[in-house]
């Protein structure tokens, strides 16, 4: 990761694209938690990576890159909200208000960031199975038909994906209580 950050800091195009591809989804999750306007969400994403590049010279090698970038994404989101001079989602409709991922405080955003990162790090085949099952609501049989693979493959991919996610997210203490993220964000630094 240090090498990638160093190349990112140097403005190497491939590194900038790789950093974006690794973290863009998570950054969008932060922005979408507070904003509904697609243009503002895009602005937050773009500004977050540009600010990160500008500040990369002060990033301490060896540190965790993700929490550092998360802090920038969060601050950028707040700045956009303040600039717009309104609270997030003042124009969203009731359906959007009811969505669990919108119009929420930042209390759970770190949790969402981490979950998004864990999902993005799944192998593509496993991620697609989980997406079709959880977002689209398909059964394993339906997923198998859509992907053109045996149902056993779908089941094994799903099992592996869930184990990976559980392992990746265990540090959030999600499984100990429903407010695990508050525990994480309230922890002592270092």
């Amino acid at each position: 990761m240090d090498d990638l950050v160093a190349r990112f800091r140097a403005g190497e195009e491939a590194a900038v694209r790789e950093v974006h591809q690794r973290y863009a989804g998570a950054v969008r999750t932060v922005a979408r938690s507070q904003l509904s306007d697609p243009e503002l969400i895009s602005e937050v994403v773009q500004q977050t990576f540009i600010k990160a590049w500008r500040a990369a010279s002060s990033f301490e090698p060896g540190r965790e890159f993700a929490p550092w970038l998360y802090a920038i994404a969060r601050r950028t989101t707040i700045d956009v909200i303040r600039r717009e001079g309104r609270q997030a989602h003042t124009t969203v409709d009731e359906e959007q208000e009811a969505e669990p991922g919108t119009s929420e405080s930042f209390e759970h955003v770190w949790e969402r960031w981490e979950v998004r990162r864990a999902v993005d790090e799944l192998p593509a085949g496993e991620r697609e199975v989980v997406r079709l099952s959880n977002l689209e609501g398909f059964t394993h049989e339906e997923v198998a038909m859509r992907l053109g693979v045996p149902i056993g493959t779908v089941k094994s991919r799903s099992a592996r994906a869930y184990r990976r996610l559980a392992s990746s997210l265990r540090h959030l203490d999600l499984f100990a209580n429903q407010t695990g993220v508050a525990h994480v964000e309230g922890g002592e630094a270092q």
Binding site: F59, R63, P67, A71, I72, V184, A189
Partner: peptide
């Protein structure tokens, strides 16, 4: 409420 050093020195 940042859990670790931000790295923004």
């Amino acid at each position: 409420a940042e859990p670790v050093s931000s790295g923004r020195v």
